[in-house]
């Protein structure tokens, strides 16, 4: 499969990279490991007139730092380096599991990066296909057209979904992205970074680069869990996934967040479904109740555009949320 012609820059450091991007604007795209960008470029759905390689920035933008109750992960940290960081994997087993489920082990070590996973584009079985495959179908919303093929006649927007395992877990952890531009650094909550629009899923300016992600561990014991449904033990994007982060104080939930993957253009945070858990002991009944509500909330978002039966995915929201919550509770209590 051929890539379309493109120009290539490999700036020596961050400031050079940002200057280049500022100059080229939307004409240029960042290239980290390439596992998301290059297949899309081959499919003709990535506007990649110029790619700016980040390979020389790895020393600057890699590494996991744990300091003052905060974990910070450089954007170019490989998935394996992040997941196997002793402190991270001990304190955030849910994130470790999410990162370990991405692609395949050999990719996690070389080309899969945390930043790349966070910035991966949304996906849809009617979009991530060759130009020849799409020929004969009207261009969809994501490609500047006015239809959504899996969404049906009533669809008024792109229904492609976020299938980034790392993003879903980090969203549950209420992480913040660090973003750099020639004007300096800014911090943006993942809640803000993801627009929820399939057409333009990331709220980054043309001159910005995501340089890292960080999160507050909190004072209370934290349990994290990631539950992913896929038909194979590797290589697969989630058909559906749930991430849970749950803090306990004296056996009572002090804070909880749950996010879903492969449902919506952003990791879908379920606020109302889990809110009643706060201030309560996380009994199996209460967790099940939250999971049931989650299923109801998520259902309208789902369309048939990833490789599994739609009704099954709808039915499974309850199950993956329940499992992620149960495991998060166990872990918050000190279990594995």
């Amino acid at each position: 499969m051929q890539l379309p012609p493109m120009d290539y820059l490999a700036p020596a450091d961050l400031s050079e990279a940002l200057a280049a991007k500022a100059r080229l604007g939307d004409e240029a795209v960042w290239l980290a490991g390439g596992t998301d960008l290059l297949p899309r470029a081959k499919q003709g759905i990535a506007a990649a007139r110029t790619v700016i390689s980040l390979k020389h920035l790895a020393p600057e933008l890699s590494g996991v730092r744990v300091q003052d109750g905060r974990i910070t992960i450089g954007a170019l940290t490989t998935l394996k380096a992040a997941g196997e960081h002793p402190e991270l994997s001990r304190r955030l087993p849910g994130l470790r599991d999410a990162l370990a489920s991405i692609g395949a082990e050999t990719l996690q070590q070389s080309v899969g990066t945390v930043g790349g996973n966070l910035c991966a584009d949304t996906r849809c079985l009617y979009l991530n296909q060759s130009p020849a495959w799409r020929a004969g179908l009207a261009p969809c919303f994501k490609l500047g057209g006015e239809v959504c093929h899996p969404g049906g006649a009533s669809a008024d927007r792109c229904r492609s979904v976020c299938q980034s395992d790392g993003a879903v877990m980090l969203m549950a952890l209420q992480a913040e992205a660090q973003v750099a531009s020639p004007q300096g650094q800014r911090t943006v909550a993942l809640d803000e970074l993801y627009t929820g629009k399939g057409e333009t899923p990331l709220a980054l300016q043309a001159d910005e680069l995501l340089t890292g992600v960080s999160l507050e561990l909190g004072d209370d014991p934290l349990g994290t869990a990631y539950h992913k449904l896929a038909l194979r033990g590797a290589l697969d994007y989630p058909l559906l996934s749930a991430a849970a982060a749950l803090w306990l104080r004296d056996g009572v939930v002090s804070r909880v967040r749950v996010a879903l993957g492969a449902v919506y253009a952003a990791p879908l945070v379920l606020i109302d479904a889990v809110a009643p858990l706060v201030g309560q002991e996380p009994t199996p009944e209460r967790l099940a109740q939250a999971a049931r509500k989650a299923g109801g909330h998520a259902e309208p978002f789902l369309v048939d555009n990833v490789g599994a039966d739609l009704q099954w995915r709808k039915d499974m929201v309850r199950v993956v949320v329940a499992r992620a919550l149960e495991q998060a509770v166990q872990r918050a209590k000190g279990g594995a």
């Binding site: 490999a10 290239l31 596992t35 290059l38 790619v51 050999t106 990719l107 070389s110």
Partner: peptide, 26 residues
Amino acid sequence: GEGACGACTVLVDGLARRACLTLALE
């Protein structure tokens, strides 16, 4: 050609990479 099958795997500086998803200049 899309990084799924692994048949094009080569080692670049000792690490496994999909040659089909690696720009040569990288």
